[in-house]
């Protein structure tokens, strides 16, 4: 779980119901540090990709208005047990994380 991404996927027939949680501060760039009074630089996830067996299913483009430790739920048609689901993100500093799970 070093990626900080948690994936929960449930198969209903051939539809996969996917819920994800990502550990990220999602700093807007407008908040100030309470101790130093300095503005905390913007640091937020800009792009999330979901892939099923390596095929891109969904791309989410985000701004800083997505809440801290983002929650993202979506559904995929045509999924089956044994399929590999990959969720990855990239932030505005170019940092990335990726997590993989097998549907069951």
């Amino acid at each position: 779980m070093a990626s900080g991404i948690r994936i929960k996927a449930k198969l209903n027939g051939d539809q996969a119901e996917v819920k994800t949680l990502m550990k990220h501060n999602m700093e807007t760039g407008t908040a100030k540090d309470k101790k130093t009074g300095e503005t905390i630089p913007a640091h937020y996830i800009t792009e999330v990709k979901a892939e099923l067996n390596g095929k891109l299913v969904m791309t989410a483009n985000w701004g800083p208005a997505v809440s801290k430790n983002p929650y993202f739920a979506f559904n995929i048609n045509g999924a089956k047990a044994g399929d590999t689901l990959t969720v990855s993100w990239m932030d505005n500093k170019g940092e990335t994380a990726s997590e993989q799970t097998t549907l069951s």
Binding site: A50, V57, M58, T59, W62, G63, A65, F74, N75, N77
Partner: peptide, 20 residues
Amino acid sequence: LAASFDLGPGAVADVSTRLK
């Protein structure tokens, strides 16, 4: 603009997230 989701093949038009 808070978020924008591009749907590829297989993606269902149903997304949830949390916003500020």
